[in-house]
């Protein structure tokens, strides 16, 4: 319990550090900060916007006062104003969070479930052709650029075969009277290709990792004990082997959550998925720096939280760690 409290505190400090780091980045950016922040706004409204930003950030104040104001603002959900969207940044970001999380978690579930299944099957026949092919598969999965995988999937399944939708999260022609179930099914169809593009990067490496860890577990004495008890292979694999074999995978999950969300930016861009990544891409095009910074903060915080969650999950799965330290 104490260990978890320490972890939570550390996570909070990390989030603070990210915010400070962001501020320093803006501070160091060349040219007028106001120019950097209002970036894409031209014409009549510009001076007005610049004035607004100056007041908001209190640019006449010394560095540390500005910093503290900035931290306070961010912690209360105030990420400033977007001259492009002509709205507070938080209003632009809020509706984008759910689609990104949905995509990321689906991709993660896809990669973990299929990867662990493939890896476990391969571990039961470690010398088979299938098992050897896994390494090649892992190398290929790693080497394919995400956006390229996405475009290939669009070409093959969306255009040539015309099986699945390739753009957005819902069919625009879906009648507004459509019920929740119909809407959810439509979203699910739109999710398939983005999920695969994003999941494939991890799928192969999880399969390889779980194969190695399953191989080790299957040779352990407690698996022999479970078999000697008279358990059939199903419970031996699922109850006794799997729970031990997923421990190393959980560790990797947390560490790779950042990579997952980075990949989501590319996948969302390819599939016009209305998430944070797509917003980040648009913000790059329009030089909407405030939005970019806010997304960076939000996503970093998400990664830190994901790390915290995996850390706790790790303790739940492995009693040696949970009860081991006082």
């Amino acid at each position: 319990m104490k260990a978890i409290a320490v972890k939570i505190f550390e996570s909070f400090l990390l989030i603070l550090a990210v915010i400070v780091f962001n501020f320093v980045l803006i501070y160091l950016a060349p040219g007028d900060v106001v120019d950097a922040l209002s970036g894409g706004a031209f014409g009549d409204g510009r001076e007005e916007i610049n004035q607004l930003i100056r007041e908001q950030m209190g640019l006449d104040q010394p560095f540390h006062v500005q910093l503290i104001t900035y931290i306070g603002n961010v912690l209360t959900g105030d990420f400033g104003f977007s001259p492009i969207g002509n709205r507070p940044v938080i209003e632009m970001i809020a509706p984008r969070i759910f689609p990104t999380l949905l995509l990321a978690l689906c991709a993660l579930a896809f990669a973990v479930i299929i990867g662990v299944t493939i890896g476990s099957i391969a571990a039961r026949r470690p010398t088979s052709f299938f098992s050897g092919g896994l390494t090649v598969f892992a190398l290929i999965g790693f080497a394919m650029p995400v956006f390229w995988t996405g475009i290939l999937l669009v070409l093959v399944f969306g255009v040539w075969l015309d099986w699945l939708p390739v753009s957005g999260m819902n069919n625009l022609r879906l009648s507004s009277s459509a019920g929740f179930v119909e809407r959810a099914l439509d979203t699910a169809r739109h999710l398939v290709l983005p999920t695969i593009s994003l999941g494939v990067i991890f799928l192969a490496s999880y399969a390889r990792l779980s194969r190695a860890s399953m191989l080790e577990v299957l040779q352990s004495d407690y698996i022999r004990t479970a078999r000697a008890k008279g358990l059939s292979e199903g419970p031996v694999m699922i109850k006794h082997a799997l729970r031990n074999a997923v421990i190393p995978i959980i560790t990797v999950l947390g560490m790779e959550f950042g990579v997952l969300l980075s990949g989501a930016i590319l996948v969302e861009t390819v599939f016009n998925w209305p998430g944070l990544g797509r917003l980040a891409f648009e913000a790059v095009l329009t030089r909407d720096t405030n939005v970019l910074l806010a997304i960076l903060t939000m996503v970093s915080a998400t990664v830190i939280l994901a790390n915290l969650v995996t850390d706790i999950a790790y303790r739940l799965v492995d009693p040696r760690i949970r009860i081991g330290d006082v």
Binding site: T225, G230, S232, H240, R320
Partner: peptide, 29 residues
């Protein structure tokens, strides 16, 4: 058959092993 064997294992014939340290599954009580 494997099925018959399973009803015998742990029930009519049971076994204890050399390594008590590793013969129990670490994640269950």
């Amino acid at each position: 058959t494997e099925r018959e064997m399973r009803s015998i294992r742990g029930n009519e014939i049971s076994m204890i092993f050399q390594e008590p340290l590793t013969s129990l599954n670490p994640v269950y009580t």
